[in-house]
Amino acid sequence: MKSIAAPLLAWFDRHGRHDLPWQHPRSAYRVWLSEIMLQQTRVETVIDYFQRFVEALPTLADLAAADEDTVLALWSGLGYYRRARFLHRAARLCVQQHGGELPRDFEALAALPGIGRSTAGAILSQAHGLRFPILDGNVKRVLTRLHGIHGHPGQSAVEKQLWALAEQHTPHQRLADYTQAIMDLGATLCTRSRPRCEACPLHASCVAYAQDLTAELPTPKPTRAIPTRRTHMLLLRDAEQRILLQRRDQPGVWSGLWSLPEAESDDDAKRRAAEHAKVHEPRALNAFTHVFSHYRLRIQPLLFEAAAPTPRIADNDDLRWCGRDQIDALGLPAPVRKLLNDTWESDA
């Protein structure tokens, strides 16, 4: 098999991304954090979150010592919050079992929550220059097109074939640069739609380019209808303009995050609001839809003005009254944070 490393690295030296914040310094902790953030999220979005995160928690020990609310607040807006909880759990396991560092042993590293084979390879190759292949979404797309592989890359047989190719193509020198280079190629040239094949250093040996298959490869995942669910969110506001927040149960969507109490109907919402305070008739705010990977959630916000909260709320770890100046310290789902801010702004 003809090596792709030489032309890919030559292209990377001229056109690759060399100034990403996790590259300076390229420590294992910073590479790990960036890899977890970049799962299903674009580089342009991640940069600001990464910088804010490492300013607050600059080391693995700082992450392990932080409480969950702090971690989720720093993650708030990136979505897929299970990534943040796995990150936090893995940091604590490193302190307990690996001397406060990410292990350099591949099996031990890949066994940590949220890491797995590809992320472990990315950490070891970029932070330590060790020879391990990666197979993230960008690399799957590059290899699928380069070798003309049909079948959805998530299928076991196809993924096994792609891992074998990733292993064969990984060079023995410049591992950190090669890993970044093949990710950059997928992110900037070999894109999902309208790839810039003429600028690609590998186009001369690319099966998809030669056979005009770039629009067909990778083979898309079989589609299925996404259902719509409906909920009512209660904005229960007291005389001090604080709003009642509730920590969501685990497991489930947004598990462990602070959100708004929910109800199935207007009547159920009124009943739930009355459990916490004496309230006036609610005002319906503009409904909106939030899209998850497996369903759409149609949200009807209801604003309740409360006269006085019940005393038990102050003693409940999963309920709290919060003002606008307090929510930045909490992990909230992005649509809930926006809804809260919009509500406060509209009445300012």
Rank of each mutant, 00 (worst) to 15 (best):
L332D: 04
K2H: 15
V139N: 03
S265H: 00
R237Y: 00
A64I: 10
L72I: 09
I313H: 04
H294L: 12
G129A: 04
H232F: 15
A306R: 01
W258G: 06
T179N: 15
N316A: 15
L302C: 09
A65E: 15
G77N: 02
Q126A: 11
R271M: 11
G79F: 11
T310M: 14
T41N: 10
R312A: 15
T41W: 09
P21D: 12
E44R: 08
Q241H: 14
A314T: 05
E198P: 04
R145T: 06
A307I: 14
T59A: 02
A65R: 14
V54N: 01
P201R: 11
H98A: 03
A273L: 04
M37Q: 10
P103N: 04
S205L: 15
A110E: 12
P301L: 10
R337N: 12
H172G: 13
G151S: 06
C200L: 11
T214E: 10
L109Y: 08
W258Q: 04
A187C: 07
L8S: 03
A269R: 01
R272P: 01
A120C: 10
S27P: 11
A10L: 13
A90N: 06
R296H: 15
H290M: 06
Q39V: 08
R271G: 08
V207Y: 05
A199F: 08
P171Q: 01
N341V: 14
W258T: 01
W163F: 10
R85C: 03
Q51W: 05
R337T: 10
L339C: 12
A10I: 08
A204I: 10
A181Q: 00
L260E: 03
L8F: 07
D69W: 13
T223E: 14
L285T: 09
T219L: 09
Q40L: 08
P333K: 02
L102C: 04
S27I: 10
A108G: 06
H24W: 09
A65L: 12
D62M: 09
E55Y: 05
P153Q: 07
C197M: 03
H147A: 13
Y178R: 05
S3Y: 06
V207L: 07
R248C: 11
L109I: 03
C322F: 00
G129I: 00
D325Y: 00
D325G: 02
L60W: 05
W344D: 10
C206I: 02
Q40E: 05
R42K: 13
L124T: 07
T289E: 15
V207N: 00
Q40D: 05
A127N: 02
R104M: 12
C190E: 08
R83H: 09
R283N: 07
P333Y: 03
F132G: 01
A65V: 05
R196F: 01
I47F: 03
T188G: 02
S293L: 06
R89T: 13
L78V: 12
L124Q: 03
I299Q: 08
A56E: 11
D62W: 10
S193K: 14
H172D: 15
T170Y: 01
E107I: 07
L20E: 11
G252E: 04
L38G: 13
H88L: 11
M233N: 08
